[in-house]
């Protein structure tokens, strides 16, 4: 991990995204003042129009690459950043907008826009990692505030952050949640989804919908087999795997397998 100067510069950039993950940083209300004492916020346009030129010590990148311009811009950002952390499902797997990867973007443009000739977009939405080297990834839609602070703190003190690749189930069990899959037959992606959210959805009696993407060693086929036994249709599982991490390989394979079986 690279050593940082005495007044490290933090920058936050966005690509195709909803801004919700950046908002997690602003949502650290109790910690913001401390943060500004530890780092110089150099470029964070959601918070301030005051911009300090690079290079940056720590750069947070939100969003996915969906245009030709973005492909170049992400290279420039990488070149200006000592430590680059991607934040959220868009930046780490392509986000909900990666649904285009399964469809014809030109056809979408014709249907949606009155003047599609002005639309210049790539055929796919891809994670930042596909374009530049990334030092750390924070999963989630949105990311976890705890994991964000943990990561910033780890970068500042040059240690490895605690970002487990375990399943959501372990967080459910630590919380004492009753398993919604076993006790109710609910469609829950917890067993194949990465921890980090604190098992919020099962704590409120609904299945995990996988917004943190696949866990460290996802074994999806036996789960889909079991969910079918419990009555989930092919169409339902296709939709469940095609949300915020639709293009993450394990989830993409699962939805494509449902799609093939459906037709």
């Amino acid at each position: 991990m690279p050593a940082l100067g005495p007044n490290p510069r933090l920058a936050v950039f966005k690509f195709a995204s909803c801004d919700g993950c950046q908002l997690t940083l602003l949502d650290c209300e109790d910690e913001l003042l401390t943060l500004t004492r530890r780092v110089e916020i150099a470029d964070f346009r959601e918070a301030s129009s005051q911009v300090i030129e690079g290079p940056y010590d720590l750069t947070l990148v939100e969003g996915s690459v969906t245009t030709e311009e973005d492909r170049h811009r992400v290279q420039e950002i990488r070149a200006e950043s000592r430590f680059l952390v991607t934040i959220g499902a868009c930046a780490t797997s392509g986000g909900i907008q990666a649904l285009r990867n399964f469809a014809d973007v030109e056809e979408f443009s014709r249907v949606v826009y009155a003047s599609p000739q002005y639309i210049r977009t790539l055929a796919t939405s891809t994670p930042i990692r596909d374009h530049v080297s990334v030092d750390l990834e924070l999963r989630g839609c949105p990311i976890s505030k705890h994991q964000l602070l943990e990561t910033i703190s780890a970068v500042l003190t040059r240690r490895t952050p605690d970002l487990p690749t375990d399943s959501v189930c372990i967080e459910c069990k630590r919380r004492g949640n009753v398993c919604v899959l076993v006790a109710r037959g609910a469609t829950c992606l917890g067993p194949v989804t990465q921890a980090g959210c604190g098992a919020i959805c099962p704590a409120f009696h609904r299945g995990c919908y996988g917004c943190f993407g696949p866990q460290g060693t996802p074994n999806v086929p036996p789960l889909t087999h079991r969910l079918h036994e419990l009555g989930a249709s092919r169409g339902e599982l296709l939709r469940v795997f095609r949300t915020f991490n639709a293009a993450a390989p394990a989830f993409r394979q699962a939805s494509e397998s449902e799609e093939r079986a459906k037709t």
Binding site: T34, R38, S167, C169, I170, V192, Q215
Partner: peptide, 24 residues
Amino acid sequence: LACTNCTMACPTCFCSTTEEVPSL
């Protein structure tokens, strides 16, 4: 599924890890 449910539900499984949570 390598989901850990068996070990979490087990009354004798005792494995743990530690985490250090420094303030900012």
